[in-house]
Design a protein around this nucleic acid. Sequence first.
DNA 1: TTGACAAATGAACAGTCATTCATTCATATT
DNA 2: AATATGAATGAATGACTGTTCATTTGTCAA
Lengths: 200, 200
Amino acid sequence: MKTADKHDKIIRAATKVFAKKGFFNARISDIAKEAKVADGTIYLYFNNKYDMLLSVFEEKIGRLVNLINSQLEQEDDPRRMLEIFITTHLREMKKNKNLAEVIQIELRQTNKMVKDYRNNKFSEYLNIISMIIKKGQAKGVFRRDVLPGLAKRAIFGAMDEIARIWNINIDSEYPIDETTNQVISIFLIGILQHPTTGKS
Amino acid sequence: MKTADKHDKIIRAATKVFAKKGFFNARISDIAKEAKVADGTIYLYFNNKYDMLLSVFEEKIGRLVNLINSQLEQEDDPRRMLEIFITTHLREMKKNKNLAEVIQIELRQTNKMVKDYRNNKFSEYLNIISMIIKKGQAKGVFRRDVLPGLAKRAIFGAMDEIARIWNINIDSEYPIDETTNQVISIFLIGILQHPTTGKS
DNA sequence: TTGACAAATGAACAGTCATTCATTCATATT
DNA sequence: AATATGAATGAATGACTGTTCATTTGTCAA
């Protein structure tokens, strides 16, 4: 087996174990066993436990960024772009619960360990949202007084909370399509009953 | 010192330490020291470490529920009620960062430890949002096709993510009033530029 | 076949901490 | 003053686990 393959194998195992047990309750030996590798082998590929979590996170978010970017490539309508972002994010979280879980873990458990939080894949990911919003504002389709840097947080936060619930499965669950449409419509037109709104 | 006082003192210390170090990195001896109490004393008031986190969480959320309910008491306009909820939540999170932190921790780290997630203060808290929405729908001020059970997640998630950022203080930060207004307007009227919307 | 190098192993180490409990202290009662 | 009761203490315990490294295994060129 090639070195690259083993690295990958460990990443996959780590994702699974972190997602299932959380970072602190995951043992290196759990991950090693899941990857069918000796405990020590892990340290040939990663510096330490936290380095693994970070690698898992960056790798997965990187894939997400690529996926979304490829989806958005053809599209030029900001409204449609936002719909695509929301749809894709929710679909991926639903499809890959471990990913959703690892995002949750990394985002809250390890802030305290790490200082530099700016230049990473995750910021890049969220900035896709704010770029869409800015574009929409420039085109006059989105309200100009919305702060893109705040809106990106609101939108991500909403989706992240919904994904969290999927992973606990409390709440009688709604179909993903319905959920997606709800989120899109809430952020586009709000919950207020508009006199003019006749759209479905 | 009375027994009740000591219980309280420990809760306060635990909140502080959990917020600062996270659940898993917080040592009982840290909390004991912060509370100016012997390690063993803690076990006279709590069963174990996790029991403390749960107590802290329930206690703090309980206060929030009371606060919000008292704020909402006088109000009957659903739109205004939602504004009050959002304003109060964000204000409290800003004021008490430890609280925000403990919510983050408890919500993601311990789901895995606990099974019953239904009947607790936190559900009660979120259900205030959905009750407001239902009321607004009954009165015809909120869109009828919005699912209250989903909207409450979206609204809470958005605010929680914003509070998370406050606690890391990345992002050039906006004043709290502006942030609050943004969140309110996003959820009420959305980000789409409406032809009819002339309101500030 | 041999030797050299790299990859992999997993037992052992070293440190950490939640929890316990024998003992001490504080207070109230007689 | 003597005793009883419960609260508080904190050192000791015991279990756990991230990381290391001496050793083994695999690979390939000469």
